[in-house]
Protein backbone atom coordinates (compact mmCIF):
# COMPACT_ATOMS: atom_id res chain seq x y z
CA UNK A 1 0.00 0.00 0.00
CA UNK A 2 1.26 3.43 -0.83
CA UNK A 3 1.25 6.04 1.88
CA UNK A 4 -1.56 8.60 1.76
CA UNK A 5 0.03 11.85 0.72
CA UNK A 6 -0.72 15.27 -0.59
CA UNK A 7 -2.01 14.90 -4.09
CA UNK A 8 0.53 15.16 -6.83
CA UNK A 9 -1.99 14.80 -9.61
CA UNK A 10 -4.71 17.41 -9.32
CA UNK A 11 -7.60 16.34 -11.51
CA UNK A 12 -9.76 18.77 -13.36
CA UNK A 13 -13.27 18.33 -12.06
CA UNK A 14 -14.75 21.16 -14.09
CA UNK A 15 -17.11 18.82 -15.90
CA UNK A 16 -18.44 17.51 -12.65
CA UNK A 17 -18.79 21.00 -11.28
CA UNK A 18 -20.69 22.14 -14.32
CA UNK A 19 -23.20 19.41 -13.73
CA UNK A 20 -23.49 20.44 -10.10
CA UNK A 21 -24.12 24.05 -10.91
CA UNK A 22 -26.91 23.06 -13.24
CA UNK A 23 -28.65 21.01 -10.58
CA UNK A 24 -32.17 22.29 -10.20
CA UNK A 25 -32.79 23.73 -6.78
CA UNK A 26 -36.39 24.69 -6.37
CA UNK A 27 -37.69 27.60 -4.36
CA UNK A 28 -39.43 25.20 -2.03
CA UNK A 29 -36.20 23.39 -1.43
CA UNK A 30 -34.39 26.59 -0.63
CA UNK A 31 -37.13 27.66 1.71
CA UNK A 32 -36.99 24.42 3.63
CA UNK A 33 -33.33 23.60 3.70
CA UNK A 34 -31.33 26.77 3.32
CA UNK A 35 -29.11 28.19 0.64
CA UNK A 36 -26.20 26.71 -1.26
CA UNK A 37 -22.61 27.51 -0.31
CA UNK A 38 -19.24 26.46 -1.55
CA UNK A 39 -16.84 24.23 0.28
CA UNK A 40 -13.30 23.62 -0.89
CA UNK A 41 -10.89 20.75 -0.72
CA UNK A 42 -7.62 20.72 -2.56
CA UNK A 43 -8.86 23.50 -4.83
CA UNK A 44 -11.74 21.31 -5.93
CA UNK A 45 -14.89 23.22 -5.05
CA UNK A 46 -18.11 21.29 -4.71
CA UNK A 47 -21.41 22.76 -3.63
CA UNK A 48 -24.36 21.46 -1.76
CA UNK A 49 -27.43 22.85 -0.12
CA UNK A 50 -26.71 23.68 3.49
CA UNK A 51 -29.17 22.29 6.00
CA UNK A 52 -30.45 24.35 8.92
CA UNK A 53 -28.75 24.08 12.28
CA UNK A 54 -31.79 25.23 14.22
CA UNK A 55 -34.93 23.15 14.59
CA UNK A 56 -38.11 23.65 16.54
CA UNK A 57 -40.33 20.65 17.04
CA UNK A 58 -41.50 19.69 20.49
CA UNK A 59 -38.22 18.84 22.17
CA UNK A 60 -37.64 18.54 25.88
CA UNK A 61 -34.94 20.73 27.38
CA UNK A 62 -32.42 17.90 27.52
CA UNK A 63 -33.12 17.04 23.89
CA UNK A 64 -32.64 20.66 22.85
CA UNK A 65 -29.39 20.78 24.73
CA UNK A 66 -28.12 17.59 23.13
CA UNK A 67 -28.99 18.78 19.63
CA UNK A 68 -27.28 22.11 20.27
CA UNK A 69 -24.17 20.22 21.37
CA UNK A 70 -24.26 18.09 18.24
CA UNK A 71 -24.52 21.13 16.00
CA UNK A 72 -21.66 22.83 17.85
CA UNK A 73 -19.40 19.83 17.21
CA UNK A 74 -17.51 19.37 13.93
CA UNK A 75 -16.69 15.75 13.21
CA UNK A 76 -15.58 15.43 9.61
CA UNK A 77 -12.49 17.17 8.35
CA UNK A 78 -13.03 19.15 5.18
CA UNK A 79 -11.44 16.47 3.03
CA UNK A 80 -13.73 13.84 4.50
CA UNK A 81 -16.82 15.95 3.99
CA UNK A 82 -15.92 16.61 0.37
CA UNK A 83 -15.35 12.88 -0.16
CA UNK A 84 -18.81 12.26 1.26
CA UNK A 85 -20.22 14.88 -1.09
CA UNK A 86 -18.59 13.31 -4.14
CA UNK A 87 -19.82 9.85 -3.18
CA UNK A 88 -23.36 11.04 -2.45
CA UNK A 89 -23.40 12.77 -5.80
CA UNK A 90 -22.39 9.58 -7.58
CA UNK A 91 -25.03 7.58 -5.70
CA UNK A 92 -27.86 10.03 -6.43
CA UNK A 93 -26.69 12.36 -9.21
CA UNK A 94 -27.77 15.92 -9.60
CA UNK A 95 -28.79 15.63 -13.26
CA UNK A 96 -32.37 14.76 -12.44
CA UNK A 97 -35.55 16.79 -12.44
CA UNK A 98 -36.06 16.12 -8.73
CA UNK A 99 -32.52 17.03 -7.82
CA UNK A 100 -29.93 14.74 -6.32
CA UNK A 101 -28.09 14.17 -3.10
CA UNK A 102 -26.29 17.51 -3.12
CA UNK A 103 -29.44 19.55 -3.63
CA UNK A 104 -30.87 17.62 -0.68
CA UNK A 105 -27.93 18.66 1.49
CA UNK A 106 -26.60 15.16 2.03
CA UNK A 107 -23.12 16.02 3.36
CA UNK A 108 -24.66 18.06 6.19
CA UNK A 109 -27.08 15.24 6.94
CA UNK A 110 -24.32 12.63 7.07
CA UNK A 111 -22.28 14.89 9.32
CA UNK A 112 -25.22 15.26 11.71
CA UNK A 113 -26.10 11.57 11.75
CA UNK A 114 -22.49 10.56 12.37
CA UNK A 115 -22.52 12.74 15.46
CA UNK A 116 -26.00 11.63 16.52
CA UNK A 117 -25.26 7.92 16.09
CA UNK A 118 -21.83 7.24 17.42
CA UNK A 119 -21.73 3.86 15.70
CA UNK A 120 -21.52 5.59 12.30
CA UNK A 121 -18.44 7.64 13.10
CA UNK A 122 -15.71 5.08 12.71
CA UNK A 123 -17.18 3.22 9.70
CA UNK A 124 -17.51 6.53 7.85
CA UNK A 125 -14.08 7.88 8.76
CA UNK A 126 -12.43 4.54 8.21
CA UNK A 127 -14.32 4.00 4.97
CA UNK A 128 -13.13 7.30 3.58
CA UNK A 129 -9.55 6.41 4.52
CA UNK A 130 -10.01 3.00 2.88
CA UNK A 131 -11.32 4.45 -0.36
CA UNK A 132 -8.45 6.97 -0.44
CA UNK A 133 -5.93 4.19 0.05
CA UNK A 134 -7.55 2.13 -2.65
CA UNK A 135 -7.56 5.08 -5.01
CA UNK A 136 -3.94 5.93 -4.29
CA UNK A 137 -2.91 2.37 -4.91
CA UNK A 138 -4.76 2.10 -8.17
CA UNK A 139 -4.66 5.62 -9.56
CA UNK A 140 -2.02 7.47 -7.58
CA UNK A 141 -4.35 10.00 -6.05
CA UNK A 142 -6.93 10.21 -3.32
CA UNK A 143 -10.53 9.50 -4.29
CA UNK A 144 -11.73 13.09 -4.70
CA UNK A 145 -8.71 13.94 -6.79
CA UNK A 146 -9.12 11.00 -9.13
CA UNK A 147 -10.90 11.73 -12.37
CA UNK A 148 -14.51 10.84 -12.73
CA UNK A 149 -13.86 7.67 -14.74
CA UNK A 150 -11.46 6.49 -12.04
CA UNK A 151 -13.96 7.35 -9.34
CA UNK A 152 -16.65 5.40 -11.10
CA UNK A 153 -14.28 2.45 -11.56
CA UNK A 154 -13.74 2.42 -7.82
CA UNK A 155 -17.47 2.59 -7.18
CA UNK A 156 -18.07 -0.24 -9.65
CA UNK A 157 -15.69 -2.35 -7.61
CA UNK A 158 -17.41 -1.76 -4.26
CA UNK A 159 -21.05 -0.99 -5.07
CA UNK A 160 -22.29 -4.60 -5.20
CA UNK A 161 -22.48 -6.74 -2.05
CA UNK A 162 -22.34 -9.98 -4.07
CA UNK A 163 -18.68 -9.38 -4.93
CA UNK A 164 -16.66 -12.01 -3.07
CA UNK A 165 -13.17 -10.45 -3.30
CA UNK A 166 -12.01 -10.37 0.31
CA UNK A 167 -9.81 -7.34 -0.18
CA UNK A 168 -12.82 -5.28 -1.27
CA UNK A 169 -15.13 -6.13 1.64
CA UNK A 170 -14.33 -3.03 3.73
CA UNK A 171 -15.03 -0.85 0.71
CA UNK A 172 -18.26 -2.69 -0.03
CA UNK A 173 -19.44 -2.24 3.55
CA UNK A 174 -18.58 1.47 3.38
CA UNK A 175 -20.32 1.99 0.07
CA UNK A 176 -23.46 0.22 1.33
CA UNK A 177 -23.48 2.54 4.33
CA UNK A 178 -23.05 5.57 2.07
CA UNK A 179 -25.86 4.36 -0.21
CA UNK A 180 -28.13 3.87 2.80
CA UNK A 181 -27.33 7.31 4.17
CA UNK A 182 -27.74 8.96 0.78
CA UNK A 183 -31.10 7.40 -0.01
CA UNK A 184 -32.53 7.92 3.46
CA UNK A 185 -31.21 11.48 3.55
CA UNK A 186 -32.68 12.25 0.15
CA UNK A 187 -36.10 10.60 0.50
CA UNK A 188 -36.71 12.42 3.78
CA UNK A 189 -36.61 15.81 2.06
CA UNK A 190 -39.18 17.56 -0.11
CA UNK A 191 -37.15 16.53 -3.16
CA UNK A 192 -37.40 12.91 -2.14
CA UNK A 193 -41.12 13.17 -1.43
CA UNK A 194 -41.61 14.53 -4.94
CA UNK A 195 -39.37 11.84 -6.46
CA UNK A 196 -41.34 9.12 -4.69
CA UNK A 197 -44.70 10.72 -5.32
CA UNK A 198 -45.51 10.53 -1.62
CA UNK A 199 -48.96 11.94 -0.81
CA UNK A 200 -49.61 11.11 2.85
CA UNK A 201 -49.05 13.01 6.11
CA UNK A 202 -52.10 15.20 5.73
CA UNK A 203 -55.62 15.18 7.16
CA UNK A 204 -57.93 13.18 4.89
CA UNK A 205 -60.75 10.67 4.99
CA UNK A 206 -59.66 7.06 4.46
CA UNK A 207 -62.45 5.25 2.69
CA UNK A 208 -60.71 2.20 1.38
CA UNK A 209 -58.46 1.21 -1.50
CA UNK A 210 -59.45 3.01 -4.74
CA UNK A 211 -61.57 0.84 -7.03
CA UNK A 212 -59.06 0.91 -9.89
CA UNK A 213 -56.34 -0.34 -7.56
CA UNK A 214 -58.57 -3.11 -6.24
CA UNK A 215 -59.30 -4.15 -9.81
CA UNK A 216 -55.65 -4.10 -10.78
CA UNK A 217 -54.82 -6.42 -7.89
CA UNK A 218 -57.85 -8.64 -8.29
CA UNK A 219 -59.06 -7.76 -4.79
CA UNK A 220 -62.43 -6.64 -3.49
CA UNK A 221 -64.15 -5.83 -0.24
CA UNK A 222 -66.74 -8.40 0.68
CA UNK A 223 -70.11 -7.08 1.75
CA UNK A 224 -69.97 -8.74 5.15
CA UNK A 225 -66.75 -6.98 6.02
CA UNK A 226 -67.87 -3.64 4.61
CA UNK A 227 -70.94 -3.74 6.84
CA UNK A 228 -68.57 -3.42 9.83
CA UNK A 229 -66.82 -0.38 8.40
CA UNK A 230 -67.35 3.29 8.91
CA UNK A 231 -69.82 5.16 6.74
CA UNK A 232 -67.78 8.32 6.31
CA UNK A 233 -70.85 10.39 5.53
CA UNK A 234 -72.00 9.77 9.14
CA UNK A 235 -68.70 10.21 10.91
CA UNK A 236 -69.74 13.43 12.59
CA UNK A 237 -73.02 12.07 13.93
CA UNK A 238 -72.49 11.25 17.59
CA UNK A 239 -72.38 7.52 18.26
CA UNK A 240 -75.26 5.87 20.09
CA UNK A 241 -75.93 2.19 20.65
CA UNK A 242 -78.91 0.06 21.58
CA UNK A 243 -78.66 -2.29 24.54
CA UNK A 244 -77.53 -5.09 22.23
CA UNK A 245 -74.30 -3.27 21.38
CA UNK A 246 -75.55 -2.26 17.95
CA UNK A 247 -74.51 1.15 16.72
CA UNK A 248 -77.73 2.95 15.82
CA UNK A 249 -76.40 6.24 14.52
Amino acid sequence: MSEPSETKHPIDRRDVLKALMLAPVSGAMLASTGCAVVSESNKQPITWTRLPTQYSYARTDVEKQRDAELFAETFFREHELVTIAVLCDIILPSDHENGGALAAGLPDFVEFMAKDREQHKLPLRGGIAWIDNYSLENFGSRFVEADIEQQLAICDAIAYPDVQDEALQPGIAFFSLMRNMTLTGYYTTELGFRDLGYVGNTPNIWDGVPDAVLARHGKSYDAQWLAKCVDQSRRNITAEWDDEMNLIT
Binding site: I90, P93, D95, A159, Y160, P161, D162, F175, S176, L183
Partner: peptide
Protein backbone atom coordinates in the same frame (compact mmCIF):
# COMPACT_ATOMS: atom_id res chain seq x y z
CA UNK B 1 -28.46 -5.88 -5.41
CA UNK B 2 -26.51 -2.69 -4.82
CA UNK B 3 -25.24 -0.21 -7.38
CA UNK B 4 -25.57 3.54 -7.62
CA UNK B 5 -27.05 6.22 -9.82
CA UNK B 6 -30.53 7.29 -10.87
CA UNK B 7 -31.59 3.68 -11.29
CA UNK B 8 -31.87 3.55 -7.51
CA UNK B 9 -34.86 5.90 -7.78
Amino acid sequence: VGGYGNGLR
